[in-house]
């Protein structure tokens, strides 16, 4: 009785082991195909789509060839910058820092490039000599 029971237990244990191995294999294969490779398929399709929209002499920039891709959320309009006289804030920048300088109707203003990088800071709405301008580079 005892030996019969243990044989039966061993048999069902073997079946369970087979089931676990097969089940795991099938699961891993499914995971590989549908999850891992799915991303590859999608990014390959995306790259192919982007390639077909690449600008070139045959596909020059136009409203028809315009193909923007979202890389970040829309950013709020930049506010909170200050306007100072260069003579009073000469130490705010290094002598060799690049600036974008503009003169309108005799009024000059500099926009330091090192304060204008990253998506939050790429466009500044400003007014110089009563002229609304967008400082960007």
């Amino acid at each position: 009785m005892v030996s019969k029971m243990s044989r039966s237990t061993a048999k069902s244990g073997f079946r369970i082991a087979i089931l676990v191995v097969v089940g795991t294999s099938v699961g891993l294969a499914a995971y590989y195909v549908f999850v891992e490779r799915w991303d590859d398929y999608q990014s390959a399709a995306k790259i192919a789509e982007q390639e077909s929209h690449r600008l070139s002499p045959e596909n020059p920039p136009s409203a028809e060839s315009f193909f923007p891709q979202r890389a970040a959320p829309e950013q709020p309009v930049v506010t909170g910058y200050q306007i100072a006289l260069t003579g009073e804030v000469a130490d705010a920048l290094n002598d060799d820092d690049l600036v974008l300088g503009v003169v309108i109707d005799g009024e000059a203003r500099a926009y330091p490039i090192n304060m204008m990088t990253g998506p939050e800071r790429e466009v500044f709405n400003d007014t110089l000599a009563e002229t609304p301008l967008a400082a960007t580079w």
Binding site: V78, G80, Y81, Q82, I83, A84, L85, T86, G87, V89, A92, L93, V99, G101, V103, E107, A108, R109, A110, Y111, P112, N114, M115, M116, T117, G118, R121, F124, D126, A135
Partner: peptide, 13 residues
């Protein structure tokens, strides 16, 4: 342009 103004904010780089 010694009379120039400058736009100032914190540096980003």
């Amino acid at each position: 342009y010694p009379d120039s103004t400058v736009m100032l904010m914190s540096k980003t780089t």
